[in-house]
Amino acid sequence: MTGAGDRAQGPVPPDTAGLLRRAAPVAWLVLVWVLLWGTFSWANVLGGLVVALVVLTVFPLPPAPGRGWLRPLATLRAVGRFGTDLVVSSLQVAWQSLEALRPGPPIRSSVIAVPLASSSEFVMAVVTELLSLTPGSVVIEVRPEERTLWAHVLGADDDAAVAAFREQVARLEADVVAALGRPAAPVTYAPGTDGHAAHREGS
């Protein structure tokens, strides 16, 4: 593990992984900088490095929660599934928008509480973000201390739809946990949760 980082030369610091983790946002900002300039040149990289360091010194980020790296295969699968969800639900909401033009009772929705299996706030944030990205569901309240999020789901007008949405979130969460890897996304059982997402992941 020591010496694995290409940025950590010299006297080996005790916390190589931590250093790498702190280097990640710098690398990301430099990448954005270079992309904004549009052309790769060493002047751009150096300028980006300076800007990134200044920005991160002035506005320090909270420590990243993860240990270890994304797992590539699981990440690919999660991205693929999410893409499918995105397309399907976009078409669904498009249909519902057109359907609402017809005279008749307006469309009904639900505000659904979804308990999560993972105790990690980071997983919660990612799941929230992904759910809000998908048309048809918007997370309107998050309470990390209860490990529960509340989502408004368009067109969920019976108990079956509510249960289906909970199932969808559980699958999404399992995907996220699988992609992040267990150390970064601990799953512990709360007394109230069923932990079905954790079961699927546990194999």
Binding site: P115, E121, F122, M124, A125, T128, E146, P191, G192
Partner: peptide, 22 residues
């Protein structure tokens, strides 16, 4: 910022979970 994680992982189950949820 509140949901983005402040390194408080693993302490999230500190309060009465089973009571209110049902």
């Amino acid at each position: 910022p509140a949901t983005r994680g402040r390194g408080r992982d693993g302490t999230g189950h500190a309060d009465g979970d089973g009571t209110g949820r049902r």
